[in-house]
């Protein structure tokens, strides 16, 4: 049974589509893409990343340093609640707060993939993921993780049960070995009054080249359904109370 919340904890939902390098990509594509979406996503920002990578040389003690630069365009809605990120062989659709439901988010993903496909003409997916980030805040005087989560770090009884910070992550296998569900619970903010956690649930399809772009819709629907189920399994009724479950 699908549950509804008046104060859902979702702080971000994103669909990340990485394509196999395509020969049709060129620098005009972000501009052409912007032309098609600018009525909805008029504010643009360029994001430049520089990464350093260490490539092992012939023995374990020496490494070659490599710097890589990536340019990514971000297009925002005027109210800054949603953005589209585009760079070479990458399309990301991010929905920030307020999340107005899957029925609204899914058409945005499909529509933007359509626009991207028309312009960039990608051949196949390389990796795709649907991710949900939930922020759950608990009063510090009531920090019994098991009351709020069914997925949390288990600590032996003799140890302090009040964590200072933690990060736990599990990848769950799927019937398709190329897919997995990833769960991460991490402390994001701690002060004198409360603990705040981020529960991230992601459905990831690695080596997604066997998935036809035309079959993406059904993968997406299935991924969302799995994420919703896992989310409900990870939380307790005490958390549902915080989120204001709407009983129908």
């Amino acid at each position: 049974m699908k549950r509804n919340y008046s104060n859902p904890p979702i702080i971000e939902a994103l669909c990340e589509l990485i394509f196999f390098p395509s020969s049709s990509w060129d620098m005009t594509i972000p501009g052409l893409f912007y032309e098609k979406i600018k009525d909805e996503f008029p504010t643009k920002q360029q994001h430049t990343g520089i990464g350093i990578d260490f490539k092992p040389l012939d023995n374990d003690r020496n490494f070659e340093q490599r710097f890589e630069m990536s340019q990514r365009m971000q297009f925002f809605k005027t109210d800054k609640t949603s953005l589209i990120q585009i760079s070479k062989d990458l399309l990301v659709i991010n929905q920030l707060k307020p999340y107005s439901g899957w029925e609204n988010f899914k058409p945005v993903i499909l529509k933007k993939l359509n626009v991207y496909s028309e312009i960039a003409k990608p051949d196949t997916f390389k990796q795709i993921a649907l991710r949900y980030l939930n922020q759950i805040t608990i009063p510090k005087n009531d920090i019994q993780l098991k009351d709020y989560f069914n997925f949390y770090p288990y600590l032996p009884e003799k140890l302090s049960q009040i964590p200072k910070a933690f990060n736990i992550s599990v990848d769950l296998s799927n019937s398709n070995p190329l897919e997995h569900l990833s769960l991460t619970l991490t402390t994001s903010n701690i002060n004198e009054e409360f603990f705040s956690f981020i529960l991230e649930i992601a459905s990831v399809y690695l080596n997604a080249d066997i998935l036809k772009i035309g079959d993406f819709d059904s993968w997406l629907e299935n991924a969302h359904e799995q994420i919703e189920q896992v989310f409900e399994e990870c939380i307790t009724d005490k958390s549902r109370k915080i989120f204001g479950e709407v009983i129908q």
Partner: peptide
């Protein structure tokens, strides 16, 4: 830096910058 900052990095590793919030 503090431990919670390190944790954000761990999350970041899995979500290399495509999450706007992270």
């Amino acid at each position: 830096d503090s431990v919670d900052f390190q944790n954000i990095y761990y999350l970041y590793e899995q979500e290399p910058e495509h999450s706007f919030i992270i």
